[in-house]
Amino acid sequence: MTAFKKIEDHLRKEAKNLLEGGKVTLVLAYARGFDEKHPVPCVVKAAADADHLVFNEYCTYNMARYLTRYPVGTKIAVAVKGADSRAVVQLIQEGKVRRDDLVILGIPATGMKNQKTGEVIDAKTTASTINPVLYDVLLGDEIHGVKAGSPYDVLAEFEGMDKDARWAFWKKEFERCIRCYACRKACPMCYCDPCFMDASRPRWADKSPTDDGTLMYHLTRFYHLAGRCIDCGECSRACPVDIPLHLFHKKVAKECEAMFGQAAGMNIEDKPAMANFKGEDSDQMLG
């Protein structure tokens, strides 16, 4: 079991040191929300405020989401869990943040819970990445010996469906979409400004919530996240109507890994899969 209290103490201490020492100008981590079960993402700028930081099993947010808000050159310390650290790596690969600007506070954590239902969500999202892949300071201890299945295990049920059943499934899920765009806004990799959905010339999809516009939005977003999705599950968690977007992203990630031999956000030396090609790519991938 993850020692949340210990991590929290370490996080506060580390944030205080970094801010006092002037190594960073801000720390991105978690603070208490309106109650204990509902923490909020927070930014700490003064060492005295570091005591407000918390870390518990409900701190599911991917803090890498906030990195691209600050101009390049801002010295930032960011608290990241396993999958979140992959987002940082991916952002470095894409040149959105610089490694030198960051102090990565890695948090190995299992047993993270959904705030609404209290259900443990590890298996749904970051099954394989319990320990951060890149960090400067490790808060807590690395976790070993937890039997982590493949992150793609949850896909079996959907891959087993025939195409008509799959279409029926997604059609039903997308029908609920209210186009609040929480999925793209919660996503650490969705930093485009403007997003293709906000463009009016050309208008890629209807602005009103029609079914075909919703289909266009989600399918295109799945494509835009191809080779970049780091499987943090934020899109599904943010969705107010519980559309399991992470399943589709996982499927795309799985195919990318199989075809291009590289998972997103594992190594800062990698090039993003879709902005690259290799000599050994073959036409077989076109089916």
């Binding site: 993402p41 186009r179 765009y181 929480a182 806004k185």
Partner: peptide, 12 residues
Amino acid sequence: MACIACGACTYG
């Protein structure tokens, strides 16, 4: 600070 600028609150 935490706001991610989605429309969930408004739509709800």
